[in-house]
Design a protein around this nucleic acid. Sequence first.
DNA 1: GCCAACGTTGGC
DNA 2: GCCAACGTTGGC
Length: 801
Amino acid sequence: MNQKPVETLLPGKEPVEEDVDQRTEKKSSERDNTSELSGTEETPSTDPAKETPAEVEEEDRKAGGGGEPPVDWFEPLEDDDDDADSASRNDPEEESLAGESERSESVGGSEKTIKKMYQPKMPRGKRSHPDEGWVEWPALGQGWKRKEVVRRSGSSIGQKDVYYLSPRGDRVRSKVELATVMNLDVSKFEYKTGTFYDGEAPPPRVRHRIKRKIRERSSSESSFMEHGEGAETPDSLHRLTPSLGSKGVQSNQTNLSSSTTFGTSNRNEDPPGEHKIRLPPPSSSKPLPFPSINGEIGKEDSTLICARCSVSFTGTWYDKQRKRPFCPSCWASSKSREHPMIRFRKWIPCGQCVGCHNTVNCGQCANCKHGMQSPDTRKRLCRKRRCICPIRKESGSGSFIHQKSYSDIPDTFDDSMSYQSEVTDSQQPSLKSSDTENFSVNIDMEDEDELSTDDDDDWHKKRKRRSCGECKACLCRKDCGACDFCIDKPKFGGSNKKRQKCRLRQCQRQAMRHLLPFQMGQGEYGADGSGLPGRPRPHYTYSRKSSLKKNKGPHFDLDATDNEDDDCNFQPMNWSSSDGNVRDNQSMQQLNDLDFGVRNGMSDRVPHISNHNSSQPDQQKRWDAERSHAQRHAKEEEEDELPMITQIFSLADNSAGSGMDMDNQLIKLLHSLRSSVLPILWYAIMVEGPQLQLIQCSKQSSMTDTMVLIDPGFCYQVTVQKQPLLPTHPLYDSYPARLTSVTEVVNLLLGLEKYAVCQGLPPKQPLPDKDPIILERASTCDFLVKKNVSICIHCRALRGL
DNA sequence: GCCAACGTTGGC
DNA sequence: GCCAACGTTGGC
């Protein structure tokens, strides 16, 4: 059966789902497949890591199952081999295959996918052209096209996503979207296959495909295979992936030597063909009634009664909670999805110890005898060949908790782990069967360590590196609903083009800068945004070194890299949108805030201009600069004739001590203001604090330098040219102390329009024409005076008027 | 160099 | 099945 590797491999590579009927419609893709498959099939035989042809055949046998019912197209063993090969050498063929992989996204590329899975470490190939791979799909109507894309990396590698393309060019990703685009009832449309059905919906498919393992490569694994033991190697025994078990189940029917892993005495109960369920490894760890005794394993094939169907069976199959015995059939039927989160960690033998180097079964130990005498397909590793790696023992003290990995482990993980435990209970006396949790974590941790330096780990980190998980933005779970990214989201009625996380939720430390809720800092912080929080934009080489260098500005050491103080440095920021309703723009006041924010704190209503020395030239120049700056921006806005809504916000440093609820209340008010008509050219923005600010953006307004600041408690303050009005200002007497509604805000804004800014006092002595006019103000200047009054009484008093 | 767009992948 | 959102690409 090994003479025709193509035939034996093909079934294993067949996508388990549908596709049979589809293939006729994918002729073009199949043509590609033909040539690529030839490359695929050759991989095992050309694998230099295989020592002998016999070993290659052994692998083929395992992979192909010798004509057994189709197995999953993710053949872990092959994958392992290939991975091992990848780890131990640079396989030129692999490179060529990578190229093939790049072309294998379209329909019918399933077979090719097997190759893709073999090279998850390969850098992502060139993305296929969006126009490629589409197949006319008349089932949906004239002009519709369909395309299948196989995920090329990640833990869901190999998974197929189906897309449809409407005649109008709408790209549909799901049934929901399809319903939207077609505006038809698609309830009888099977999205995956692209067909309509009559009557009852087709029964849910039993997915043969398991979650693929990925990132499962290690040199130790490779070296292990070099022992030439094929299926009998500790490696195979140590596999956790159920798919391997399936392989074992399938292959054991034709080849005892390959029936190594975890088949059970009742494996024949596996449903055949389409309904054949890949069974998990048998359980033997806590709280099984047949734990290892003195390292002995072999009680597993005792008779149990299935808690579901009452059928007696042999083995140690339990439900996923491991509380009740489940026969394999019920176990399988209880699994709609196999270990979605499992990374298929392995116990990876060191490959160096005496046990690992021993390639000959002693034939005397209990495990050897068990293998020879028991029909149980589980082949247990000869005790003389167990890994006795001292490193493993040193680290096997039960202190392996690896929170992240462990937290990812679903309850179903036990099923896999039990097998691991079965193998290692005796191997690792310190790990009792009751140490299931630690044990499972142990494995994961160990694997993490093993793989910590490979690209795979990099991949994982890469995917996760945009979130520190600690900053307030990361902890925030609620979308603001107002930023451009939120607006883009379908749930907010957007077109889902940007597909980015809410700007307020972008990690303040690790998100790319352009995703952070500011861009205004560009001018203030330098064109490259140096000094701003967040990661610099990538240059697609992801060589952060050069980028981070730029990040070290003089004002802030916000190389966010991991500065725990980042939050404290968080600056007011804004975001932009190209969607029209929210537009990238600059708040003049906000720009000024960069300098004066601290002095302008909500809690401080004491004027910072404490005396008439405010007339000092530097003070006046600063004001002038502010005014000039603000007016310049206002002019730009007006020239653009586009509504300006600048949002500035930070979840960092909630100095008011209010919780997220209060923040949210403030955001709600912001939203209400945004959806309301405010007095002309008043805009609501959110800034650090958080603080809601109402700003007048028109230089034509007498309130151009006036802001209303609302804190999370809805208390407000009015500032003019960054200086707060004294609490004694009569304005405050006319309005409630807290602005809790749009109406109250609007009333205040309307009231402000009745005021003008105190003009202060002109210099006593006329200055040369070219000199700037320096105004003086009293320390108690009202700033805002009625429009028919140009100078407040305090300034007048200062001059003795 | 920026950024809109979107392929892709993780997670529920 | 669907959504969220990360990372990359190509156009500008």
